[in-house]
Design a protein around this nucleic acid. Structure first.
Length: 894
RNA sequence: GGGCGCUUAGCUCAGUUGGUAGAGCGUCUCCCUUACAAGGAGAGGGUCGGGGGUUCGAGUCCCUCAGCGCCCACCA
């Protein structure tokens, strides 16, 4: 074969080679920048949910990013000035944990290094990770403006954090206070309520006897954590509880110690639970803390920050210094030995675990910084009710609202080193706190220079909460990006971080910028494995999207993934089938494009010209494909507007494969041979292919770019900045569709008979079509060429009525027509009887239903006219079909 | 204890103003026809979890039962 012209496509699509080449092309030409769209009127912006630097790319990111990329590429093609802001999150606890673990393997601790050296080490590690993660993201083919990439701990964002903290502090919305927090003894830090995962665990309920000091008996308390008893400061009973009324005001002795505790009354105590007597441990239990405070009881700390029993003198010597788990066992043993343990019974309850390291958390009374969330949340609720923010799917609104309504104060201090150090200075002289935008030298209360910055850092989510505007240059309200792109349009994320992140962003956004940071929150489902299990590293069922991409190509992967998305935001079971379907679709697109390019090749002396399609000279099939194409265009735009990505994939798949490839491309083979049709057919092929590439580009960026660049007459440098097709309504012609669809149905009916009777497809087949329907008669006459192209026809007769009754016909019905194929001796009477009877059964059932409907007065009365008409027409059709089959059966039976 | 989601063809799932069920894969039959065998053509396959209700009409709305899954909640 001669050398291929330069525009020809290679025999097979090579994803790997194309992907790396095209991505470089995009980056080198800076096409991800919003400035790539000059003269844009409208704008569109969104921020990527910043992945943790600790993470590796997983399927969730792939889904999340693909959805965003579809929106971004679509808007860019609509001509909007489009910004997708990328970046990553420093992930305080998670990152520190990883680096500390690495240190531990070398036998070192962070304390060995000291704060500064340790932080430097974490930076080093984080920077390496950032590069890795960006590299993985690029493999997804996504198009954020990498030149703008941000990090939650970079200079600009740190400035934003500082501003936010100072603002909230001065407004009284941040406070330092002593409260019970969830304490992780392994991370040695407080964590927030939502960072605590509760797990049902089988444990015990211990009943312990506390003797009254006046020897009048004993109170038996029930507890799930006997080791905390040393921190008891009282025993509480319900004031209504007649069993214990007489003990109120008396004292009990805390077993194993010499301490005496008051018996108090509090209605919080549930008389029906346990023994109805509750030990009060304010320093180590949230409810006890509240009760203790109300009764003016001083808390007693007995657990240290690593979850060990403190070496307090009143605690039995053998217990001191023990880990809480060990302490529980030894305490139980001691209680039993000394006769205080009344009963130990099985009891299952919920135990809090640290989300980052799964360690059992201890409620611990300590001094922490809090955001008073109530006023912030109220503002979010108002904003929601004012319609300033909308969730898709809508049902998540309820969760968001409920959480905001029942919101608890947010503990934002963490006893870590990696993160934004809290910008508060404590005075050693007057104990006052100084919080300013600039680092202070002196205490603002007493002027002392003996001040020290708080050693805690902020919860990671504090900085993530500022993300949509901190990345845009806030607090500088004149920053270009802030002016141009804030507020953003849409936020795309999973439901698991609605509370962690979405709500924090709206709280901060409304408070600090006065605006909701986005108007739409698109919540997608979780990606699960083939069995429907949540993917997790511990289960070992994670799928690496990059590996899948290596296997099937990025476009196939993205298309498959997109087709799995549902509007209801259902969790997605990762089906390899669907991913493969995407791969096959890419292949189909590639080959269809090859066909088109081969047949319009410039090397061909009469290759496609650059004239517009001659709409005055269109064949039926031309008009049909243009109608279908424009219908698909209309649907695609609508589906994108409605965030219906799965349907978008299905719609385009159907059009490209079953519309364009199966019928038009096949028919074009004929038209290309016809001198008077050739040029226009080439133009139409090119036009529709070009449109298909554009329509698919948001989902399949690489292959569409690769083919696009081979198209003749293209004006744009890249498909990325080519216009997304808009429907030409004039070319949508239902009448043409109806006629051609009828012909294609007829093609199928004839093929069906050919297959049934195994007539070789090389053998011409004679067909008689009996119909009185004008549209059908007309279609057969005018579209005879179509029929002939798709089935090897012999004689074709179009008749008003049956002229002969022949038992040697095979029959099928289409619309009002009966399609008869005389088969002479070939026909197997029994087989044909069987086949026709089967069709009859189905038809009769439908006929009965339709008759029922038509004889139902109320249906005719109340159903919409269009529905009545539609069914009426269908009944007529069915009647004709039934009649045709009846006659056929008679003929066969003769 | 509240709240939410799911139950549709052998498998995985679509199906939002209620109009009489679809796709992919798999299965069966035929075909290497010059874009594609990673393909083409044809076929079979479902009383839409059970029950009840509203309606001319329900996979779609309401109630109820069953199974599965998730989220939230301070009962020691």
């Amino acid at each position: 074969m001669a050398n291929s012209p330069s525009s020809a496509l290679s025999k097979a699509y090579e994803p790997k080679e194309v992907e790396s080449r095209i991505y470089s092309f995009w980056e080198n030409n800076r096409l991800f920048k919003p400035e790539a769209n000059l003269n844009a009127q409208k704008r569109f912006s969104l921020v990527i949910p910043p992945p943790n630097v600790t993470g590796v790319l997983h399927m969730g990111h792939a889904l999340d990013s693909t959805i965003q990329d579809i929106l971004v590429r679509w808007h860019r093609m609509l001509g909007d000035k489009t910004l997708w802001m990328p970046g990553m999150d420093h992930a305080g606890i998670a990152t520190q944990n990883v680096v500390e673990r690495n240190l531990r393997e070398q036998g070192k601790s962070r304390e060995d290094l000291g704060r500064e050296a340790f932080i430097n080490l974490v930076w080093e590690w984080a920077n390496a990770r950032k590069a890795d993660i960006a590299g993985q993201f690029k493999r997804l083919g996504i198009s954020p403006d990498w030149e703008r990439q941000r990090f939650t701990l970079d200079e600009g964002l740190s400035k934003a954090v500082r501003h936010a903290f100072v603002h909230l502090y001065k407004k009284g919305l941040i406070e330092q206070g002593t409260y019970i927090v969830n304490w992780c003894p392994r991370c040695v830090s407080a964590i927030s309520d939502i960072e605590t995962d509760y797990v049902d665990e089988e444990s015990y309920l211990w009943e312990i006897s506390y003797p009254l000091t006046d020897d009048s008996g004993a109170l038996v308390v029930a507890t799930t954590r006997p080791e905390t008893m040393y921190g008891d400061v009282a025993v509480a009973v319900n004031p209504e509880d007649t069993r214990y009324a007489k003990f109120i005001g008396k004292k009990v002795r805390l077993p194993l110690t010499e301490r005496e505790l008051p018996v108090i009354a509090d209605s919080y105590v549930d008389m029906t639970f346990g023994t109805g007597a509750l030990k009060i441990t304010p320093a180590h239990d949230p409810n006890d803390f509240k009760i203790g405070r109300e009764h003016g009881l001083e808390p007693v700390w007995i657990l240290d920050e690593r979850g060990r029993i403190k070496p307090e003198a009143f605690i039995p010597e053998e217990i001191r210094g023990l880990d809480r788990k060990e302490a529980r066992l030894r305490t139980e043993a001691l209680l039993e030995q000394q006769g205080y343990l009344v009963r130990k019974r099985e009891h299952s309850h919920r135990v809090g675990h640290c989300q980052r390291c799964q360690t059992v958390i201890e409620p611990l009374l300590s001094k922490q910084w809090f955001v008073k969330t109530k006023p912030l949340a109220d503002r979010c609720i108002q904003s929601l009710k004012a319609g300033e923010i909308k969730f898709i799917p809508e049902r998540w609104t309820k969760d968001y609202l409920r959480w905001l309504t029942d919101i608890q104060d947010w503990c934002i201090s963490r006893q870590l080193w990696w993160g934004h150090q809290i910008p508060a200075w404590h005075c050693a002289q007057c104990r006052g706190v100084t919080v300013e935008l600039e680092d202070p030298d002196t205490c603002e209360h007493c002027g002392s220079t003996d001040i020290q910055q708080d050693t805690d850092v902020l919860d990671t989510w504090f900085s993530s909460g500022l993300w949509p505007f901190s990345t845009m240059g806030w607090p500088d309200e004149n920053a270009e990006d802030y002016k141009n792109f804030y507020p953003t349009d849409v936020l795309v994320t999973g439901f698991d971080i609605i509370f962690f992140w979405v709500a924090r962003m709206t709280m901060f956004g409304l408070e600090l910028t006065g605006k909701s940071p986005f108007h739409t929150v698109y919540i997608h489902g979780l990606i699960r494995d083939e069995k429907g299990q949540k993917m997790s590293k511990s289960k070992g069922n994670t799928v690496d999207p990059v590996e899948l991409i290596d296997e099937v190509g990025c476009d196939g992967f993205r298309f498959g993934l997109t087709s799995l998305i549902t509007y209801g935001g259902q969790d997605i079971k990762l089906a390899k089938d669907k991913i493969d379907q995407g791969r096959l679709f890419a292949n189909k697109l590639w080959n269809a494009s090859r066909f088109v390019l081969m047949n319009i090749a410039p090397a061909d002396s009469d290759g496609v010209d650059d004239q517009p399609i001659d709409t005055a000279n269109l064949s039926l099939m031309d008009r049909w494909i243009l109608s279908r194409y424009n219908t698909a265009v209309r649907q695609a735009n609508q589906l994108l507007t409605d965030y219906k990505f799965g349907e978008l994939a299905d719609t385009l798949y159907e059009f490209v494969w079953n519309g364009f490839c199966d019928w038009y491309v096949e028919y074009a083979k004929k038209q290309l041979q016809e001198p008077e049709r050739r040029a226009n057919t080439q133009r139409i092929l090119l036009h529709v292919l070009d449109g298909i590439l554009r329509l698919l580009h948001p989902i399949m960026p690489y292959i569409t770019e690769e083919i696009f660049q081979k198209l003749p007459h293209r004006k744009e440098q890249s498909i990325m900045i080519a216009r997304y097709p808009q429907a030409d309504e004039n070319l949508i012609d239902p009448g043409i569709s109806e006629r051609v669809d009828y012909i294609l149905e007829t093609v199928r009916a004839i093929r069906n008979i050919r297959q049934q009777y195994t007539v070789p497809h090389t053998q011409p087949i004679n067909v008689s079509i009996i119909t009185t329907e004008p549209m059908e008669r007309d279609a057969i006459v005018t579209a005879r060429g179509i029929l002939e192209h798709f089935v090897k026809l012999g004689e074709l007769n179009v008749l008003d009525v049956m002229d002969v009754q022949s038992e040697h016909n095979a029959v099928n019905v289409v619309g009002h027509s009966r399609i008869m194929v005389p088969l002479g001796g070939l026909i197997d009477i029994e087989q044909e009887l069987e086949r026709v009877r089967k069709k009859m059964t189905v038809l009769l059932k439908e006929q009965e239903q339709l008759y029922k409907m038509m004889s139902n007065f109320e249906f005719l009365e109340r159903a919409p006219q269009a529905v009545v008409e539609k069914n009426k027409a269908r009944l007529q059709e069915v009647n004709k079909q039934v009649k045709a089959l009846e006659e056929q059966l008679e003929g066969l039976a003769r």
